[in-house]
Design a protein around this nucleic acid. Structure first.
Length: 270
DNA sequence: CCAGACGTTGTT
DNA sequence: GTCTGG
DNA sequence: CCAGACGTTGTT
DNA sequence: GTCTGG
């Protein structure tokens, strides 16, 4: 058994696509086709369409299967689309709650952190998303946050640099938890007006290098962890309904009018 | 060497 | 497992 | 990331 | 303020 699951990939999907929080509503079969991957056997029972995937919930990611992996024995399958819990739980962890604090890894430091070192060498993945949300903080009133939705400008699904792990409870070796984290870097030109960080976007020509199990030298893959160049992403402001992880509907990605910036509050010294 | 931690974000 | 700190 | 809770004892 | 849960 795999991963924590909380929704079913069944029934209605958005027909067309038009970190953190992401959206993942394109059906797995279509994602696999678009990304030239095969579907993990257990995928159909894991997760479901969501416009508001939060840490601790199920994400989908591409991995290169091991040669002995059952998913690899089926046909071409250079890569497999598989379900993971968002929040990395290293296999040496005594308690899976560590995953709550491992939802991102910084590209600048990932190679020098004990918690990520092993996964960076041997367990890299590409987190698949239709889009992701970033919150713009009002410089006058930092408590006021305006959410923006980001997608690829070319309409393809996002493929975000990630790491994954397998974890087994000490007392229940049969209960396998697959988990993952999203690598972040400084914001590129498409994003910096909202936020100073962004998830690392990996482009199709780099998929094989990032996913390669044979490549165990972090130095060989770190150059891929760079901000997305201008024009990669497009974005629009969305409703603050997305703020609550309890809300989940297509309405969350609908463009709304950006609220005007808050007027500076006069102070005694103005 | 051993022991102990293993993370990022944003905010002040 | 792997890194940092002592 | 944001929202929401923030606790222990003992009893069923 | 800080931690947990989604």
């Amino acid at each position: 058994m795999g991963v924590s699951a909380n929704r079913k990939f069944a029934g209605s999907y958005a027909e067309d696509p038009m970190c953190g929080r992401i959206a993942l509503y394109t059906p797995p079969s279509r994602l696999a086709r678009l990304l030239d991957a095969s579907l993990d056997e257990e995928l159909e029972s894991e997760g479901g369409p969501s416009w508001n995937v939060a840490p601790s919930q199920t994400m989908l990611a591409l991995v290169e299967p091991r040669p002995d992996d059952s998913a690899a024995s089926s046909e071409a399958a250079g890569r497999v689309l598989r379900a993971f819990r968002w929040g990395l739980v290293p296999y040496w962890a005594g308690d899976p709650s560590i995953g709550n604090r491992m939802i991102n890894a910084r590209a600048e430091t990932v190679a020098s952190k004990g918690a990520f070192s092993s996964a960076l060498s041997r367990r890299r993945c590409l987190v698949v998303a239709d889009g992701f949300y970033e919150w713009q903080r009002d410089p006058v009133n930092p408590k006021r946050k305006v959410p923006y939705y980001f997608v690829r400008a070319d309409g393809l699904p996002l493929t975000l640099a990630g790491l994954w792990e397998r974890w087994q409870p000490p007392d229940r070796p049969e209960a396998l938890l697959l988990s993952c984290t999203v690598i972040t870097t400084s914001a590129g030109p498409d994003i910096e007006f909202v936020h100073d960080r962004m998830p690392v976007v990996v482009e199709a020509p780099d998929f094989d290098r990032w996913l390669s199990r044979a490549e165990r030298d972090p130095e060989a893959v770190l150059p891929l962890l760079r901000p997305a160049p201008a024009g990669t992403l497009r974005s629009h402001p969305v409703s603050s309904l997305v703020n609550s992880p309890r809300n989940d509907s297509p309405e969350l990605i609908v463009e709304v009018e950006a609220p005007p910036p808050e007027e500076p509050v006069p102070t005694l010294f103005d």
